[in-house]
């Protein structure tokens, strides 16, 4: 035997899964929604996505190489996910330089300032999104009309913004003009940011990820159930002033948030019990912001707030131990 024998501690075999594979599965899961957004908003959607992905990858590479002086880890695919998610969270009409700023905030502040993949507390894409929302409120809420609609409106309000406005003015929901019906919402025939429009395709991506064991059902289901129940209570009390729960679930990026952003592995809790509490928290905060806050929708803030709670949940909520307490 020419070579030396290797000695290592057990186990001596390893599953074929790798971090890279997991990341690419997330990307595959987002492809249907991405295609639909191109279909809806035209080539602009693709432009935004490509700029965001390229910028995120480039920023990660540059910051790691020249500021942090470590070996860049862009090949793991996580920067691509952040890029796509960031693009999913902005309107298709967003100028390129704002996307660059968003990507810089996402990668620089949201991820690498904490030490890179695995160390960040907040979901990088959401950090970028909220950064842009607070810095460029006008551009971030000018929603281009959908290409498929007969009337090519320059700017439309999102369904939730319409409702917020009407509630503020005391107009009953039933009289609000221009609200899409539930079927439109499910398919994605409404205004909004790239990735939030088609609830059905997002669910499809979610099912793929659960099937491939990238995520578990706990977080998305608990968020959706909480939103449904909580908004349902209000709707039951006063259907005049509150929209029905199904509407809440299908609008304002809730699906996108519940399936793709709240489930981000790095920033979500690590055991099923804690994940359900985390999901319930996101659901409650989202609806509270939507109903009582200044913003028409609140899933981004809700996820960021619960991201901050995640270490506490990990500390206090323990998985079911074998052999009881």
């Amino acid at each position: 035997m020419s070579k030396l024998l290797t000695v290592s501690p057990s186990p001596h075999v390893h599953s074929s899964d790798s971090t890279q594979k997991i990341m690419y599965r997330v990307i595959y899961a987002m492809v249907p929604a991405l295609i639909w957004s191109v279909f809806m908003f035209g080539i602009d959607a693709l432009r935004v996505t490509l700029i965001a992905v390229a910028a995120c990858v480039a920023f990660e590479y540059l910051i790691q190489k020249y500021l942090m002086k470590v070996t860049p880890s862009v090949t793991d695919g996580s920067a691509i996910i952040t890029g796509i998610l960031l693009a999913f969270n902005v309107p298709s009409s967003l100028p390129w330089w704002i996307i660059l700023i968003g990507a810089m905030a996402a990668m620089g502040i949201g991820k690498l300032s904490f030490g890179g993949l695995g160390s960040n507390i907040f979901n990088p894409a959401l950090v970028g999104r909220v950064f842009l929302l607070l810095s460029f409120p006008v551009q971030m809420t000018s929603w281009p009309g959908i290409k498929m609609a007969a009337v090519d409106a320059v700017s439309t309000a999102t369904p939730l913004a319409l409702i917020k406005e009407s509630v503020k003015n005391g107009i009953p929901i039933a009289k609000v003009q221009g609200l899409p019906d539930l079927t439109d919402l499910a398919i994605g025939m409404n205004a909004g940011s790239l990735g939030e429009v088609s609830a059905l395709l997002l669910v499809l991506g979610g099912i793929y990820m659960i099937w491939k064991k990238v995520i578990t059902w706990h977080i998305p289901v608990s968020i959706l159930a909480t939103v449904f129940v909580f908004s349902g209570i209000f709707w039951g009390i006063n259907p005049e002033m509150y929209v029905n729960p199904a509407f809440h679930i299908m609008t304002g990026g809730l699906m996108l948030g519940a399936i793709f952003m709240a489930t981000d592995m790095v920033t979500s809790p690590m055991n099923p019990k804690a994940q359900i509490i985390y999901g319930i928290g996101i659901g409650l905060i989202t609806i509270s912001i939507r109903m009582f806050g200044a913003y028409p929708e609140g899933i981004s803030f809700a996820i960021l707030i619960m991201n901050a709670v995640t270490p506490l949940l990990n500390y206090y909520i323990k998985p079911k131990r074998f052999g009881g307490q």
């Binding site: 971090t19 996580s78 890179g116 993949l117 695995g118 592995m265 979500s268 998985p319 074998f322």
Partner: peptide, 17 residues
Amino acid sequence: IACIRCSRCVSVCPMGL
């Protein structure tokens, strides 16, 4: 490489650790 906190180790641990 870095832990991505995917929690697979938690879900496969037969002792619930």
